[in-house]
Deep mutational scan, measured.
Amino acid sequence: HNLTITQGKLFFHYNPKLCLSEIHKMEEVSGTKGRQERNDIALKTNGDQASCENELLKFSYIRTSFDKILLRWEPYWPPDFRDLLGFMLFYKEAPYQNVTEFDGQDACGSNSWTVVDIDPPLRSNDPKSQNHPGWLMRGLKPWTQYAIFVKTLVTFSDERRTYGAKSDIIYVQTDATNPSVPLDPISVSNSSSQIILKWKPPSDPNGNITHYLVFWERQAEDSELFELDYCLKGLKLPSRTWSPPFESEDSQKHNQSEYEDSAGECCSCPKTDSQILKELEESSFRKTFEDYLHNVVFVPRKTSSGTGAEDPRPSRKRRSLGDVGNVTVAVPTVAAFPNTSSTSVPTSPEEHRPFEKVVNKESLVISGLRHFTGYRIELQACNQDTPEERCSVAAYVSARTMPEAKADDIVGPVTHEIFENNVVHLMWQEPKEPNGLIVLYEVSYRRYGDEELHLCVSRKHFALERGCRLRGLSPGNYSVRIRATSLAGNGSWTEPTYFYVTDYLDVPSNIA
């Protein structure tokens, strides 16, 4: 807008934040220059609390790290170098490059900038070799853009010569660093050979998330399962459950009422301010606690030095998902009996873990797994792929695949051998790939016309006998059925096997 004052003059007093240069501009645009008398524009009460600059400061050096910015700028000295009290560095987070010096300023003089007072450097006698002032900004957020400017702080001049310097606002972004852990990993099994893994992005990506790394490792069953005799009275049979499938998407929606109208769909109840505040506090606490764990609990591995020492970490090797089922080394339970199943799973520490690289999504279907087997899954978020990966501390989750139908069934015939004193040795093959492992066998036998009897055969007993022995049988026709019990439950009964026990007292003698 054009402003013209045809008559009258300007009068400025007691404006401590208004620089004289701005008042002189007002004289020019209003056409009143030359009308004012000496005392109409006070030299001592206008701009006496402001830094009124008329020179431009330029930054000469900028260096960044993930949490620091090192700045240096060209030296500046007023005509009387004693008038320079120091520099004021202003900075704040700036997602967009549209910041002005006066953003967030209120009537009390406060604003949204963080201000650092910096002492002037030592003055050199040689004007050509003056030290460049600077400042190291610490405690910054990774991968965050900051708006920065600097200006001088000078003393009051009796001659009211307006001098000083100020830089333009520059924008500097800190470097990326390792992201925080992925949030809320959930693993479920939808079949006997697959596990579905879902997660949420890290709360602090500290860069642009480029991919996720998912490692999985087959877990050995508890050692007590191999040692305890679950045929003993009072000892509860062990059981394991597989990871249940995901709930429906509708039930997972946030901010939804727990109660549904019987007449149909209901609208979600909005969260109160107290609920939102509580969630923010919980989120802040979780982030602080995660940072504490990362800094205190997890110790970084030592990389190899120039002395030739090897990095103890196993090298990563990509495998196809079809090879995942046989990740671990199978060892027989008892070496003397080769027909026992290889369900003991000690994992070799030198073995390469299978892994998958996930790009542009937060889910993965891990296939080719062994049925009813526990897996430990390790999830890392990465925001750099080359020249070397920059990934987060791992988040861990466990899951067990679903049982395989008929995996616990005894394959092959049940054979028998009759000894003296009416002892019958029953023999059968253990299931080759049971659900988890076989903890015991149930032997059901009966003599024709009598009630059915049951015998429990422990895992250890089966390994020693290759089956079991029935003792003290009365003469007669017998039928026997056997079924295995694994961590997933009972298998199917075998087809009945028949044998006849004679009275050993009636056996004919070869003595003449």
Rank of each mutant, 00 (worst) to 15 (best):
S203E: 13
G207L: 02
G207T: 02
I209G: 10
H211S: 04
H211I: 06
L213Q: 14
F215P: 01
F215W: 01
R218K: 10
S223I: 06
L225V: 09
F226E: 13
L232W: 02
L232G: 13
K236V: 10
S239W: 15
R240G: 14
T241N: 10
T241M: 07
S243R: 12
F246W: 12
F246Y: 12
F246P: 09
Y259F: 05
D261F: 09
D261G: 05
S262E: 01
S262Y: 11
E265P: 05
E265R: 14
P270G: 02
T272A: 07
D273R: 14
Q275I: 11
S284H: 06
F289L: 08
F289P: 06
F289H: 05
H294S: 03
N295S: 14
F298N: 09
P300T: 13
P300Q: 12
G306I: 13
T307W: 08
T307Y: 07
P312K: 08
R313A: 13
K317P: 07
S320N: 10
V324Y: 03
V324S: 07
G325W: 14
G325R: 04
N326G: 01
V329P: 12
P332A: 06
V334Q: 08
A336Q: 02
A336T: 07
P338D: 05
N339V: 12
S342C: 02
T343Q: 07
V345M: 12
T347P: 09
E351D: 11
H352S: 07
P354D: 15
E356V: 12
V359L: 09
K361T: 11
S363D: 03
I366E: 00
S367H: 05
E378T: 09
L379E: 00
L379M: 07
Q380E: 06
Q384I: 05
P387H: 06
E389R: 14
C391V: 08
C391P: 01
S392E: 11
A395W: 13
A395P: 02
S398T: 13
A399S: 10
A399T: 08
A399N: 03
M402Y: 15
M402V: 15
G412N: 15
E420R: 13
N422E: 15
V423T: 14
V423S: 06
V423Y: 11
P431E: 00
K432F: 09
L437R: 14
I438C: 04
I438G: 01
V439A: 14
Y445F: 04
H454T: 09
H454S: 02
H454D: 13
V457K: 05
S458F: 01
S458H: 03
H461V: 09
F462L: 05
A463E: 07
L470W: 02
R471F: 14
R471S: 04
R471H: 05
S474G: 06
V480Y: 15
R481F: 04
A488P: 02
W493Y: 15
E495W: 13
T497C: 15
Y500S: 09
Y500W: 13
V501S: 02
T502R: 10
